[in-house]
Design a protein around this nucleic acid. Structure first.
Lengths: 196, 196
DNA sequence: GTCTATATCGTGATAGAC
DNA sequence: GTCTATCACGATATAGAC
């Protein structure tokens, strides 16, 4: 069955909400601000969504489950640990360039989730990080990666790409592929030039 | 002349404010929350500070000028470009481990600055980034760094260390020196193990 | 210097007419 | 479905007693 008009409207509201939350923060965005951007009265929005909290929850968990689903596919692929880790970095870049606003909200405004949702979200993130860290651990064991502190490697990889969410616009004079290759070169081969 | 009692009290308020802003965000923190942590009534705080905005401004510009001052010292030092860039990364790590709350606020809550302050802050940051980018450019020209997109290198370096502000606690089982060395190894030599 | 009391405004959310 | 009107609350900030 096709999506109902009401569902589409709801998705539109959430999409615009993500952009505003990214711009002004969750607490800094009022339902009146949002209504204005959507083009309806604040009261009318409550016909499509049940609360401001619910919007935040939808955005954050949408991103979290996307990451975890894709991680599963990467884990079960038939490639080296280096290739799996590179695929993960590419996944982050891909999501930041296609769903920048939602990723930004999930990265920065998750702390405003209601207590139960907050706990569940933290659990999901911690679960994701553990599986990410396992790939690093196994990569080191297999001799593909340098012997470095696992946590430092994990968070450096996760963090190194986060600026892209703020910086990326379609016309930056660089393709997504070039962007990916440059970042992967820095992280896996290093910025320093090897002596010939 | 020694600092007055009133100034010390003011600094204490701002320090606690930075911790709360980091935890709950600028908009998510009320003057009543802050007053409670400081241990006085909200109205009394206004004897020491003039507004919530002023607190934010003090924090953000304090961090910005610290970064720029230290950048100046690094630029004028007598070392290779690689060493200068490594010193900059160390500077970021040092500030995040000694002034984590303030750095977090300057990184995440600067968007709540009042319009004039906002513009000035953006200008300072852009000025800092330009000088940072120059070191990368010159490092590439000198053949010390790989030929990569300058902006990507700049923001990857800046971003790669930002998780430390959230993660660092004195007892993580890793010294600041180990942390620095690991991050610098990843960024400048790469995570991938070189074939012998 | 520190408090109580309060002015004024913006917030999330709802009731109910149409 | 969409609006107007409104409620209950919490926000920043100030006035003024002590």
């Amino acid at each position: 069955m096709a999506k109902k008009k009401k569902d589409l409207r709801r998705e539109n509201i959430i999409e615009i909400a993500a952009q505003l939350f990214k711009q002004k923060g969750f607490s800094g965005t009022s339902m009146r601000d949002l209504a204005e951007q959507v083009g309806m009265d604040a009261a009318t929005m409550y016909h499509y969504i049940s609360s401001k909290d619910e919007i935040l929850k939808t955005i954050c968990f949408g991103i979290a489950t996307t990451y975890i689903t894709q991680l599963g596919e990467i884990e079960s692929s038939d490639s080296s640990y280096i290739e799996k880790l590179k695929a993960l970095v590419r996944l982050h870049l891909h999501l930041m360039t296609t769903k920048g606003a939602e990723v930004s909200v999930a990265n920065n405004d998750w702390k405003y989730l209601s207590p139960e949702a907050l706990q569940e979200f933290k659990d999901l993130r911690s679960h994701y990080e553990k599986r990410f860290a396992s790939l690093i651990e196994e990569g080191i064991q297999a001799g593909e990666l340098q012997e470095v502190n696992r946590s430092v490697a994990l968070f450096t990889l996760l963090s190194a790409v986060r600026w892209v969410e703020l910086w990326w616009k379609p016309n930056r004079g660089i393709t997504l592929e070039e962007l990916e290759n440059t970042i992967l070169t820095i992280l896996f081969n290093g910025l320093e030039k090897k002596q010939p």
